[in-house]
Amino acid sequence: MENAKILVVDDDAKLRDLLSRFLTQQGFSADTLPDARELERKLARNRPDLIVLDVMMPGDDGLAVVRRLRAAGENIPVIMLTARGEDIDRILGLEMGADDYLAKPFNPRELTARIQSVLRRHHATPALSASHTAEEKLAFGEFVLNLGQRELLCDGQAISLTSAEYAVLAVLARHPRRPLTREQLMEMALGKGNGESLDRSIDVHISRLRKALERQDSKTRHIQTVWGYGYVFVPDGTSGE
């Protein structure tokens, strides 16, 4: 996304300066904050297209910030920066609603690639085959997945999803009753191949989607586990696990 506005929130002044200069060189519009105290004001005054958010910061840490944003229904894309790069940091970030994560130290070019990938997921219309149109809507239970508008509705009300969660749900819903492995979901939905922590990452996205889809009827399972294989989307929610 050309000229996208990126907001970097990190208490490391040298890193903020480095990323600001590098992202500007890559064609982005970059702004920075040393912590999250002014974040809400920044969102209201000069809304970015994506936030790069450090986990370890004074005051509210990155996990608390992204949790607060998602609880308020804010779906702006967020990439978390984790200091240790351990599984627990990554998984917690995804559980709070982050779109992606990157472990420090990292190559700025890798961050650029992650930003471009998340922005594509967030803004792009899903690839459509000859039998699908941009106006296609998939109805299941009390839900409607509008592929053209990239939104999930429940009884007419929009449900907030991250770009990754929407991408995973769209792939599952367009292949009903076809079991898909974790690796297939990562590739088809997120454009990622095999790599560290992929199984856990897709499991977190599935867990958050289940909470969104099953909050009104605990007996209905639209996304079901195929033990030893992966997941399958069941439009009517029957054929339980």
Results as ranks from 00 to 15, higher is better:
Ala83Trp: 13
Ala83Thr: 09
Ala83Phe: 12
Arg84Asn: 15
Gly85Tyr: 09
Glu86Ala: 13
Asp87Ser: 14
Asp87Val: 13
Asp89Phe: 09
Asp89Met: 07
Asp89Cys: 10
Leu94Lys: 04
Glu95Gly: 14
Glu95Phe: 06
Glu95Pro: 02
Glu95Ala: 15
Ala98Glu: 08
Ala98Gln: 04
Asp99Leu: 05
Asp100Gln: 08
Asp100Val: 04
Leu102Asn: 10
Ala103Trp: 07
Lys104Asp: 04
Lys104Ala: 07
Pro108Val: 06
Arg109Lys: 10
Glu110Val: 11
Ala113Leu: 11
Ile115Trp: 02
Gln116Lys: 10
Gln116Ile: 09
Ser117Asp: 09
Val118Arg: 01
Val118His: 04
Arg121Leu: 14
His122Ala: 12
His122Phe: 12
His123Ser: 12
His123Met: 08
His123Gln: 12
Thr125Ala: 11
Thr125His: 11
Thr125Met: 08
Pro126Lys: 01
Leu128Val: 11
Leu128Glu: 10
Leu128His: 06
Leu128Gly: 09
Ser129Tyr: 06
Ser129Leu: 13
Ala130Val: 07
Ser131Phe: 11
Ser131Glu: 15
His132Trp: 06
Thr133Leu: 05
Ala134Phe: 01
Ala134Glu: 10
Ala134Trp: 02
Glu136Thr: 12
Lys137Trp: 04
Leu138Phe: 05
Phe140Glu: 05
Gly141Ile: 01
Gly141Thr: 02
Glu142Val: 12
Glu142Trp: 03
Phe143His: 03
Phe143Tyr: 08
Val144Cys: 09
Leu145His: 00
Leu145Met: 05
Leu145Gly: 01
Leu147Trp: 05
Leu147Gly: 04
Leu147Val: 09
Gln149Ile: 06
Leu152Ala: 01
Leu153Asn: 01
Leu153Ser: 03
Gly156His: 05
Gln157Glu: 12
Gln157Ser: 13
Ile159Phe: 06
Ile159Trp: 08
Ser160Cys: 07
Ser160Asn: 03
Thr162Ala: 12
Ser163Pro: 01
Ser163Ala: 14
Ala164Glu: 04
Glu165Ala: 02
Ala167Pro: 00
Ala167Ser: 11
Val168Met: 00
Leu169Arg: 00
Leu169Trp: 00
Leu169Thr: 00
Ala170Ser: 09
Val171Glu: 10
Val171Gly: 07
Leu172Arg: 02
Leu172Gln: 00
Ala173His: 00
Arg174Glu: 04
Arg174Gly: 06
Arg177Asn: 15
Arg177Phe: 05
Arg177Leu: 14
Pro179His: 03
Leu180Glu: 01
Leu180Ser: 03
Glu183Pro: 04
Glu183Asp: 14
Met186His: 14
Glu187Lys: 13
Ala189Ser: 10
Ala189Val: 05
Leu190Gln: 00
Leu190Thr: 03
Gly193Trp: 06
Gly193Pro: 01
Gly195Trp: 07
Glu196Thr: 15
Ser197Pro: 04
Ser197Met: 10
Ser197Arg: 15
Leu198Pro: 03
Leu198His: 13
Asp199Thr: 14
Arg200Trp: 11
Ser201Asp: 12
Ser201Lys: 07
Ser201Val: 13
Ile202His: 01
Asp203Lys: 08
Asp203Tyr: 10
Val204Ile: 13
His205Arg: 09
His205Trp: 14
Ile206Leu: 07
Ser207Gly: 07
Arg210Ile: 01
Arg210Tyr: 00
Arg210Ala: 03
